[in-house]
């Protein structure tokens, strides 16, 4: 780009963002507390222990529940205060219903989920933005209509359905080629060893389908949004000015058009992450990744209050963080925001 954004006054940004961060912290606190209360009221860990084989004595059940801090014979207020004390003051989210520390499980699974989401998000966003801008320029032409229809069809397909279809396709592909090129169970092949290169290759082969199923949705939805914001910009006076200056078509569309049309996208970005997280729950379950989503589904089945709250904390933090990143992005893209905030 010829026009440079090099040294936008960083000094005025922090105050605005610090305030924003404070608001987010309050939201997070409220959300975490509410989700604890909700999970405690709705889930029934007692049923999990009572359903154990061989059966436990009532006192043993009580003992287990009290140890976890989820005994429904204690007042909810006490349980909550006890939990909040550990969680907020010591960063300790308690134990899972099977007695392992939640924090350890959390640490193990968070990486899995992030690996899955990150690649898909980045790929999907970039491809979606480019595709959207391209279709806007070609509005109502056959290529635009084809992309529109395809993205609607994609958006009308539930995540798990797409995942199953991808899987079916991969089986078919493997059978047809007589190889097992595409792997779709877990993060890596069990017992596969070899050098760094083999490991990397193995991982990326496993990553292919899950990433695709995450990315395809981002591509479909972002291309819709980008198309409409780009269409707004295409009719604008400043694009006409840029043409009147004698700039070439490429420069006009990319440097002036797309650059400005990116600004409203930052808002969609923060909302988009919400949907993505939900989608990841399915992707993980179907492709056998042991991430946060799978943990969540399992722990609801087990009436595991502490684990469920932990996943909620993760989800809330991710959503707020992505919202914060979207704010940063917005400020970076739009000089009007920067100055207004200073």
């Amino acid at each position: 780009m010829m026009l440079q954004q090099e040294d936008w006054t960083i000094s005025c940004v922090p105050f605005y963002l610090v305030k924003r961060l404070g608001y987010h912290a309050v939201l997070l606190l409220a959300a975490v507390c509410l989700s604890y209360l909700l999970a405690s009221l709705a889930l029934d860990p007692r049923a999990y222990y009572e359903g154990r084989q061989p059966p436990l004595s009532p006192s043993a059940v009580d003992h287990h529940l009290t140890a976890l801090g989820v005994n429904d014979h204690q007042p909810l207020r006490d349980r909550f205060l006890h939990w909040a004390d550990r969680a907020f003051l010591h960063g300790d989210l308690g134990e899972t219903i099977d007695g392992t520390p939640v924090d350890a499980e959390f640490g193990r699974r968070i990486g899995v989920s992030l690996r899955l989401l990150l690649a898909g998000t980045v790929l999907g966003t970039v491809a979606g933005v480019l595709l959207g801008a391209w279709t806007a320029v070609r509005q109502y032409r056959p290529s635009d209509r084809a992309v529109t229809l395809a993205s609607f069809a994609l958006l009308s397909t539930p995540v798990f359905l797409l995942a199953v279809l991808l899987k079916t396709g991969a089986i078919w592909f493997n059978q047809a080629t007589g190889t097992d090129l595409i792997q779709f169970t877990g993060e890596r092949s069990p017992g596969a060893d070899g050098g760094l290169w083999t490991a990397l290759k193995d991982r990326s082969v496993h990553l292919l389908l899950p990433t695709l199923s995450v990315a395809l949705f981002s591509v479909a939805s972002y291309s819709r949004y980008q198309r409409s914001t780009m269409l707004d910009v295409l009719g604008s006076d400043y694009l006409r000015t840029a043409r009147a200056k004698g700039l070439g078509r490429r420069a006009v569309l990319l440097r002036h058009g797309l650059r400005t049309a990116l600004i409203p996208m930052s808002t969609y970005f923060s909302y988009g992450f919400l949907a993505l997280f939900t989608g990841a729950t399915f992707t993980e379950t179907i492709f056998g990744w042991h991430g946060m989503g799978e943990w969540f589904v399992n722990s609801i089945g087990k009436n595991d209050v502490n684990s469920v709250v932990a996943v909620n904390v993760f989800a809330a933090v991710t959503v707020l963080l992505s919202g914060f990143l979207a704010d940063l992005l917005h400020a970076a893209l739009d000089p009007r925001i920067r100055r207004a905030a200073s």
Binding site: L27, L28, A30, A31, L34, S35, L38, A39, L41, A42, L43, Y271, L274, F277, T278, T281, F296, V297, I300, V308, V311, N312, A315, A316, V319, L320
Partner: peptide, 21 residues
């Protein structure tokens, strides 16, 4: 604030927690 709060929970999680009840 209320809207933001509801947005922070992925709705899917809350519905999943509450719906068995």
């Amino acid at each position: 604030f209320f809207v933001d709060l509801l947005l922070v929970f992925p709705s899917f999680l809350v519905i999943a927690i509450v719906s068995p009840r």
